[in-house]
Nucleic acid binder design. Structure first.
Length: 519
RNA sequence: GGGCCUCUAGCUCAGCUGGUAGAGCAGCGGACUUUUAAUCCGUAGGUCGUGGGUUCGAGCCCCACGGGGCCCA
């Protein structure tokens, strides 16, 4: 602790030293920034405040608009309100100025300043000091303008916070790059960006509420792990100085949630971040949020039912309907009972010949060749090939929400064998709009078979499969204390929001990772 | 990993077959007491992502690198 504090003090000092020698080359600063900086300096030099500690806000914009929308055009009241928001529109005419302020919800309210009401000096100061993008406070009577807009006719005004950079043009879309690099600007400028933040919050609350109401207990399990497990993925590696050991950012919480289940938390879930050291594209982010839930004395069917209920409940809570309207304007129906099909059955039907867990690898390779599929030679086995074929022949054709059941055993080392069919496991993947939204298992709880599965994975790793799972002795010890028969599921939170809205993953994550720009 | 598109003023974008860089908004100065992306007059603003190359001459053509997007694997 002491050491840590000492270090942070050192870095604070270093930071201070840097900020004491600001190297601002005046000629490099765009004119608009220079002008605003000069305004800030002048306001302060004149004894004013560009960043006051508080302003006398008495009303929210939405409340003012709601209370006075019934006024006649041009009607004035004597009710005095204090409002604040960011200036998004300004019109400085000779003796009557207009400004529209916007708050965090996107609600806007017009402020009017007249020479008669505020006097010459105040009006001149307003024109000189207030820019688009500033936070502005205004106090005055609530009125409706002659043109019928609810307004505050100011008797006092103050800059609540001076913006040193200009706003972008609010009538054009920001470029996609600016949207993610400067999300704060995106949030100011684009209503859909604000909506997405709120939709996500509502959705996550809906999931939590649904789970809590069913008796699930939310826990938090380690993100820094001594051994990464629970999924097939490459981890991020970091280092802990105090113990001088490498740690891994978790790729999944599964192995810890199962330890919790062993300990008797019979209905358990976690909503939290996972990290996978892989590529990023329109549906993958290196850090993403995931819900995992485990239900003792359930199986993959009961957990599938729960998953459908959670998703449908989220759609209902966010949009009030299970027929959601996507970003491109199309409708997507999440309602009703979702289709179920089996992996081997649907693949056999699609290619017109019977594929079973005993179909030889050579034959599957031939089928892959025929379909033009290239499989990483380090990862060739029956299960991989069947999944590749299935994705190509069936997965890509799925649009309606569909549970795909009964996977090959090789790719599912944490799932129990099917209760009646050899060579497959009790696992489903949920496909929504063609992408994988969730997965569910009848959990493997036999510690002896679990050890064999890990050993099988170790052999795959030895052949060069860098996504193969690693044997986790501590986890096996927990399992040897007996985990109750359980159903478990995992669902991507970002992907659920993608499914509900039709947005890309970088729009569903508030601050997605962006590569630094080199000058 | 491969292919295609893209990077120009604070923002959004034009820029023809290679010939000294343009608009709208915003900015600055001015007019205007009911404006809604006001209007009008005037004005400033650029190392065209970075680095090479071809050329008498490159925003434009070629190569490499970087950022972003889309498609494929």
């Amino acid at each position: 602790m002491v050491g840590a504090r000492g270090r942070s003090r050192t870095s604070a000092v270093r930071l201070l030293r840097v900020s004491e020698t600001p190297e601002i080359h005046e000629s490099d600063v765009p004119e608009q920034m220079r002008v605003r900086r000069e305004k800030r300096d002048r306001i302060i030099a004149d004894g004013g405040e560009a960043y006051p500690v508080s302003v006398d806000r008495t009303h929210e914009i939405a409340d003012v608009k709601a209370a006075y929308t019934g006024l006649e055009d041009g009607e004035e009241t004597q009710d005095v309100v204090g409002v604040a928001g960011r200036v998004v529109f300004i019109r400085n005419t000779g003796k009557l100025c207009f400004a529209s302020i916007q708050d965090g919800t996107g609600e806007r309210l017009q402020i009017m300043l007249s020479l008669a009401e505020v006097g010459e000096d105040s009006l001149a100061a307003f024109k000189a000091d207030v820019d688009l993008g500033d936070h502005l406070f205004a106090k005055g009577r609530a009125i409706k303008s002659r043109r019928g807009e609810v307004s505050v006719f100011a008797t006092e005004w103050a800059i609540a916070s001076k913006a040193l950079r200009p706003l972008p043009v609010l009538h054009k879309e920001l470029s996609e790059e600016s949207r993610v690099r400067q999300r704060y600007v995106d949030l100011i400028a684009r209503p859909l960006a604000r909506d997405t933040v709120r939709h996500r919050a509502t959705m996550v609350r809906s999931l939590r509420d649904s789970l809590h109401s069913r008796g699930f207990i939310e826990v938090e399990t380690p993100m820094l792990q001594t051994q990464p497990g629970g999924a097939a993925a490459r981890p991020f590696i970091t280092h802990m100085n105090a113990y001088d050991i490498d740690l891994y950012m978790r790729i999944a919480p599964e192995l810890f949630l199962k330890r919790a289940a062993v300990g008797g938390i019979e209905k358990v879930f976690e909503i939290n971040r996972n990290f996978r050291n892989e590529g990023a594209d329109s549906s993958h982010s290196p850090e993403f949020s995931m819900l995992e839930a485990y239900e003792a004395y359930g199986d993959y069917s009961t957990i599938g039912r729960l998953t459908q209920d959670l998703v449908q409940g989220a759609a209902q809570d966010v949009f009030g309907t299970q027929v959601v309207t996507l970003a491109d304007g199309t409708e997507y129906d999440l309602g009703g009972e979702w289709a179920h099909l089996t992996m081997y059955g649907s693949l056999s039907e699609a290619i017109g010949e019977e594929i079973t867990p005993t179909t030889p690898v050579e034959h599957l390779e031939m089928l892959c060749d025929k379909a033009g599929l290239k499989v990483d030679p380090k990862r060739v086995n029956h299960g991989k090939l069947v999944e590749e074929l299935w994705e190509h022949h069936v997965g890509d054709t799925l649009t309606a929400p569909t549970f795909v059941r009964d996977f090959p055993v090789e790719t599912s080392p944490l799932t129990r064998d099917h209760r009646s069919i050899d060579g497959i496991v009790e696992k489903w993947d949920l496909y929504v709009r063609g992408f994988e939204l969730a997965t569910g298992y009848s959990e493997l709880v036999d510690p002896v078979i679990q050890r064999e599965r890990f050993e099988q994975q170790a052999r795959m790793a030895a052949q060069g499969d860098d996504e193969a799972m690693r044997l986790d002795e501590d986890f096996l010890t927990a399992m040897e204390h007996a985990m109750p028969p359980s159903g478990g599921m995992g669902m991507g939170i970002d992907r659920l929001l993608m499914a509900l809205t039709g947005l890309g993953i970088r729009e569903t994550i508030l601050f997605p990772l962006v590569k630094p720009q080199e000058d």
